[in-house]
Each structure stands twice: as structure tokens, then as C-alpha cells.
Simulated assay, not measured.
Amino acid sequence: MQPDRLHHIAIICSDYGRSKRFYTEVMGLEILSEVYREERQSYKLDLALGGQYLIELFSFPDPPARPTRPEARGLRHLAFGVKDLDQWVDYLNQREVDTEPIRVDEFTDRRFTFLNDPDGLPLELYEVEA
């Protein structure tokens, strides 16, 4: 037995408005639905990339901080495939999103870089074939 596919990734943010803007306006993900759950004082935002449901963005009152980066237990990073890494780096830097120097994967010879979302969650941009 094995799962059929990855269904979604859940992210808890500290500032819902800031994270919503980052994932939708900077990263370009599409909003599928957005609800506020009064009983939990929590927003839930469902996001898609290319029509594929991908991320659940949650807000909760005073969530604990991530212990360390990136070697903390749990999610190490979230990676997005991009066709033109240089264009993405320029795009993000123009929007005051810092990126690490571009590296090359020693096994695949593909280029990649890291950046942080508004809460410091490590995100990777991995160059894929055009």
C-alpha cells in the first residue's frame, strides 16, 4: 500500500495578512478558498499552483516559534520548481525578499537557492527543465 499522491502541505503563520500577501502576491499562488473559524480564532487559506491544491495556510493565536533552521525536526523546507532561476532571484530581490547565493546540486547538476517566507520557513527554488 502507498498513498496515491501528496494532497497538501500545512503552514502555520504568525501574521496572516503578511503571509497571505507573500504566498499570493509574491509567489503567485491562487486562492481556492478562505475561511475564518471563529471557535479557533483561525484563518484557513487553501492555495493552489497551476490549479493543483498545494498549501493550507493557517493562523492561530500565538503559535510557538520554529526551534531552529533548517535542521529542526519536522519539515526541513518546501521546494518550488522554476524554469528560470535567475529571473526568479531578480524578481524576489526587487520585492525585498532576500535569497541565498545560487548553488548547484552535486548529484543532478541543477541550480537552486533558498529564501524565507515571512515566518522564516525555508523555501527552495529548484531550477527544472523549461
Results as ranks from 00 to 15, higher is better:
Met1Tyr: 08
Met1Arg: 07
Asp4Arg: 14
His7Ala: 09
Ala10Met: 09
Ile11His: 14
Ile12Val: 13
Ile12Met: 03
Cys13Tyr: 08
Ser14Asn: 09
Tyr16Cys: 01
Gly17Arg: 14
Leu29Lys: 13
Glu30Ile: 07
Leu32Asn: 14
Glu34His: 14
Glu34Asn: 12
Glu34Asp: 15
Arg37Thr: 14
Glu38Arg: 15
Glu38Tyr: 10
Arg40Thr: 06
Gln41Gly: 14
Leu45Tyr: 09
Leu45Cys: 11
Leu45Arg: 10
Asp46Cys: 03
Gly50Trp: 02
Gly50Val: 01
Leu54Thr: 15
Ile55Ser: 12
Pro61Thr: 03
Pro61Phe: 05
Pro63Phe: 00
Arg66Ala: 12
Gly74Gln: 02
Leu75Gly: 08
Leu75Val: 07
Arg76Gly: 06
His77Ser: 04
His77Thr: 02
His77Ala: 04
Leu85Ile: 07
Leu85His: 05
Asp86Cys: 00
Gln87Asp: 12
Gln87His: 13
Gln87Arg: 15
Asp90Tyr: 10
Asp90Asn: 13
Leu92Glu: 11
Gln94Asp: 14
Arg95Phe: 03
Thr99Cys: 15
Glu100Ile: 00
Glu100Met: 01
Arg103Ser: 13
Asp105Asn: 14
Asp105Phe: 01
Thr108Glu: 12
Arg110Val: 00
Arg110Leu: 02
Arg111Thr: 01
Arg111Trp: 00
Phe114Lys: 07
Leu123Cys: 04
Glu124Val: 02
